[in-house]
């Protein structure tokens, strides 16, 4: 048990190191361009470029540059933006975290409930009209680009049907901190939650249905049937329990990926100032230090989340534990 966990943590450290090297290479060692000029942003003064070249050590060997970058990101945390003169990058990123977390956590609740419903109902009513309908709906959900769905939602709730009873409660776009007002926070996030959850309800619902149908061909289900248990009990207590294991792993991975940047598009569409929107604005201004910081922090978060899921899995599933 302990050995498994340790091995997993070692692997996590290796992957984090690999990612940081990769990011470093992408940002600073791409052939054919001057990284100092890129970090300075558009129309920077030559003195600024010169200063950056010295600060980041671009006149020195690559490993030294890598070391300097990591030091500024994690130890001194004094990476500054050159586009918005002198603004510290790391606090900016940390400030944006609550909005992203609120968005993803709410959507996660919705998509777990939604996909449980879709998967269980579709599997229970297998090959009926209900099953087909649900599967087609989830396929459509998977096929919609999330930012486009967001725009359609905005169109309906902010403009076209805003004055009807259905959407008159929807506030303008933007994030309301939880500490400010609970109701405002909730209202501002309901539509983004739904938008983000649709895709995952589709994916998870389909997978859960497939797993449940596979479980139904197992011997222990036949035994349960022969014992005369009710169909509901068989579904919920026997089939669903085993089918949920892969579900848990996937949930961990997707939750991590969303917090780590995949929610970017949803944040941009709904004007929620989370980590994703910070990255987006940095993209527009070609503000490289900010992008560098968000990419590194987010991918580290994802890797850590994945490792955590694996460790939890070892705790839950006795077969992995050994």
């Amino acid at each position: 048990m302990l050995a498994t966990v340790l091995a997993r943590l070692m692997q996590m450290a290796f992957v984090m190191f690999g990612i940081s090297v990769l990011v470093f290479l992408i940002f600073f060692a791409t052939p054919g361009s001057d990284p100092a000029a890129r970090i300075a942003g558009r129309n920077a003064a030559p003195e600024t470029v010169e200063q950056i070249r010295h600060e980041f050590g671009f006149d020195r060997a690559l490993p030294v540059q890598y070391g300097l970058m990591m030091k500024r990101l994690f130890i001194t945390r004094d990476l500054t933006s050159f586009v918005n003169r002198g603004q510290k990058v790391i606090p900016q990123v940390l400030d944006a975290v609550p909005a992203t977390l609120s968005l993803v956590a709410g959507a996660a609740v919705l998509w777990v409930l939604g996909s449980l419903f879709v998967g269980v109902v579709a599997a229970a009513m297998r090959d009926t009209v209900v099953d087909r309908g649900l599967m087609i709906l989830s396929l459509i959900g998977i096929s919609m680009p999330v930012f486009w769905l967001g725009e359609v939602m905005n169109l309906m709730s902010q403009s076209r049907f805003h004055d009807t009873w259905l959407f008159s409660w929807v506030p303008g776009l933007g994030y309301v901190p939880l500490s400010e007002s609970l109701g405002g926070w909730f209202k501002a996030l309901v539509i983004p939650w739904i938008t983000l959850a649709v895709l995952y309800i589709g994916i998870y619902g389909r997978i859960l249905r497939a797993n449940l149908i596979e479980a139904y061909s197992e011997d222990y289900i036949r035994t349960a049937r022969a014992k005369g248990l009710s169909p509901t009990r068989i579904m919920l207590r026997h089939a669903l329990r085993t089918s949920l294991l892969p579900f848990v792993t996937m949930f961990g991975l997707d939750f991590g990926a969303l917090v780590g940047g995949a929610a970017l598009l949803t944040e941009v569409v709904f004007g929620l100032n989370g980590v994703g929107r910070l990255t987006f604005h940095a993209l527009q201004n070609l503000d490289l230090p900010v992008i560098l910081a968000t990419v590194i922090y987010a991918s580290f978060f994802v890797v850590a989340a994945n490792a955590l899921v694996d460790v939890l899995y070892a705790v839950i599933d006795p077969r992995v534990r050994k």
């Binding site: 990612i19 940002f27 940047g261 970017l264 990419v295 994802v302």
Partner: peptide, 15 residues
């Protein structure tokens, strides 16, 4: 382990 969109963003912004 590298999130797809982050990788794409880093590559695009540089390229």
């Amino acid at each position: 382990a590298f999130p797809v969109y982050l990788l794409a963003i880093s590559l695009s912004i540089v390229l």
